[in-house]
Design a protein around this nucleic acid. Sequence first.
RNA 1: GCGGGUGUGGUGAAAUUGGUAGACACGCUAGACUUAGGAUCUAGUGCUUCACGGCUUGGGGGUUCGAGUCCCUUCACCCGCACCA
Length: 946
Amino acid sequence: MASQKEQEHVGYDFNRIEKKWQTYWAKNQTFKATNKSDKPKFYVLDMFPYPSGAGLHVGHPLGYIASDIVARYKRHQGFNVLHPQGYDSFGLPAEQYAIQTGQHPAKTTKENIARYREQLDRMGFSFDWSREVRTSDPSYYKWTQWIFLLLFDHYYCIEADKAMPISTLVNRFEKEGNYSVNAVSDPHVPSFSASEWNAYSNEKQQQILLGYRLTYLSDTEVNWCAALGTVLANDEIINGVSERGGHPVTKKKMKQWSMRIGAYAERLLSGLDRIEWPEPLKEMQRNWIGKSIGAKVFFQVEAHEAKIEVFTTRPDTIFGVTFMTLAPELELVQQLTTPDQQKAVEEYIEKTRQRTERERMADVKSCTGVFTGSYALHPFTAERIPIWIGDYVLADYGTGAVMAVPCGDQRDFDFAKHFNLPIKNIFKSVSIEEQAYSEKENAVIDNSDFLTGLSHKEAMKTVIAALEEKGCGKGTINYRLRDAIFSRQRYWGEPIPVYYVKGIPYPLSSEDLPLELPEVQKYLPTEEGAPPLGNATHWAWDTLTKTVVDNSLIDHQSVFPLELNTMPGWAGSSWYFYRYMDAQNSREFVSLEAKNYWQDVDLYLGGSEHATGHLLYSRFWQKFLFDLELLPVDEYAKKLINQGMILGTSAFVYRKSGTQNYISKDLLTAEDKVEPIRVDVNLVNSSDELDTAAIQNWQPQFQQATFEYSKGVFKVGREVEKMSKSKYNVVNPDEICDQYGADTLRMYEMFLGPIEQAKPWNTAGISGVSGFLNKFWRLFYDDQWRVTEAEPTKEALKITHETIKKITYDIEHFSFNTCVSSFMICVNELHRLQCYSRSILTPLTVLLSPFAPHLAEELWENLGHSHSLTQEPFPVANEAYMVEENKDYPISFNGKMRFTLSLSLDLDQEAIKKAVLEDPRTMEYLNGNTPKKWIIVPAKIINIVC
RNA sequence: GCGGGUGUGGUGAAAUUGGUAGACACGCUAGACUUAGGAUCUAGUGCUUCACGGCUUGGGGGUUCGAGUCCCUUCACCCGCACCA
């Protein structure tokens, strides 16, 4: 049998061993975590995968391997480890597959999950599968919907700086109106007294309350992707096109659910300082939140009731204002436009509306705008300031209006130059002939009435005080973070548990959750253009009659009384790490005992691509649930590591234009006109040589192909890019497991390089790791059992303890690649020393187990143990074994005596000091012409002190 | 444009606080054993030189007895944000 022959030279039978131990672990529930333990807890979490139809490729397990090493290591260290896994199983691909094939997304999702599970199991991960979650499972999304209802039922109180029940807000409105209420709200909420509030109709009251709720329904300018038929969140758009599919995105006004994440902007920002997340990722979140400190200024419009509110970070430059610019989308624009400018303004608005996001972004340089015909009055000088509109001003940042100070802002400067508007210099001894002067530090304000002569800092203070006193401005902090759109026009997502009466949304009772997805005939929008759930009319009425107690509250006139949109992908992933703590609980989202015991995630592993999506939204929900005292901490992950992506190495063949003739890469010349064509990387060997026979069966287009070989081989071109099915560069972990075994795959992925680095997959080096595991095996077996009871030599002890020390240190620092190297050195040494001593091999087996768990278990059993080594204490290095008798150790000597030994032995520092001072070489150094700052401690000193 | 990161042999990469640069592995070269194999083992392998030696961490400069590591400057590549007032 071929496989037997293979095993013969491979050394150990990984197929048998891996299957054996995977079965053993499953049967004995070896990795099941308990929610009660005397041991300290440790929670290691992976970002759960979306189960796509393509299955796992070798890039996916990278993070899982790293986290598994940590989980197993921590178990050895005596921790009660929670290491769960689940599936983020709502999502677009399953739905698009459903549209094409009519297969229910639940069915394909289930199949994909089964496939994922099979692949994950093969790699020997120590997941506690009894805690598995699936976001698309009603028993899970029940609680996602429940959290939605909580958000609906709360508002953000600025005084308390936390979320509070909407009922307390209603109480205040009834007693005092909203004049003194300090809450985060929609800017359009009117001011009212208690008597006005009490006189409002229920609809009006509900409308107002929506302006306060942490999730709310509003007409929002959204990113509409026509090709996908849905809206997209800002983080789902990359370079102006949809992240998924790369379709164009335009602005559109729609009634949408949003999440008032802006209320948490400051806490999301300050919380970053308390968590150990990668600095670049924190920086990304800081940028996304985009805090800027400045002021709001109100400009009275001449001969008009309206005031224009602007936000500026440079109120100190207010005397440099020569015009104002409004975003074209602003409603105010209609009111301000004078009759003779009407036509121009309308045309301009229409033009900007039609531009896609991408066009607008691509075209940053051109300067466009129109004069509205109106003027504003300067708050201090009452000068007339022309009001323009221009699409360089964004409607959804700040107030959508800017006071233009061309001398201090380059964009205002360019606009002024382009439209020949005046430019006034308010900076002392600075030329603004060529460009604006945007420097803050050295600016001295000039030509500015009471601000003249002040520095930027002083002027800021003075002008804000003056504005506030005059009642035409206010110091303000502005955030770039925008409220997150929460509605998706999709089928395969959590239904939003809301019904409508006269257009006003009311929540379903939490008793009636989950609101389950209905069966539908088709997964496309209805003919009226409503989302797919619009196809399930009977479902809507059934739900209402079953759940809404008061029949009179049901709007029988409505065409469709239930919410048709579903939740976005990030809803289910924003809290799943708490569900793992108590996954089976049907009464609570997580029990008090479970959350109090596990508290939070100690180590979270995942990709940095979630920086401004999942990782920000989940922090937001965390803080909200913390405010409600439903969670014990307000940051859920103490430490986060971004594993780098494993990239594919695509292969290309070159076809001579217009022919079926392919030419080997090394024969290509610059004159050749060729088209590069991707071919399956599995048909190419590690020397970039293509199997030209196999490729003719791969795709029909190659059946007629002729190949121009070079020295008998056909070379392909290579390019590193993202691993993806469509690029034919996917390497399947199953194949690696078949050929080398899971332990080899695990160690090789770690060996590839630092965990945080992106790196191309390359199978070439795997034989080194495979060889190492066989060498390890051969310390135990070489035709026969060779473990001895002999006392190890000093040398063997030294290398062993050095290895233990190094690997412990490296695991703690997530430097798994160097761990593998240390193992290799150790095993090579032991072979050289012919050391097969049980007292050496026993600790090494435990040491290896986080990396190559199957092999370690097998060897452990062969060493005579009847139980799994999972809970075995991790070996501890004894550094006394590491001292070499005839080696000198450097000690640094920085003026003062300061000892830095490469060993952390518990040495008598005073004794060393004395010995060093007495050593003749010390005086030699100290008296030498070139004073050295470091000296060598002779080995004998260490020996003396030891 | 702004913010962040990375540059070390043919390749992936090591180098705890500044202290023998290139550990470990792939690849390559030679050899041993072989029922000739993608097994195992030994030796060699940064560049340069016959050799002694010299040079070497993208380039240039600085601090230091000593710099891959710290500082300045410059170049290249990667990632994120992008008219944010």
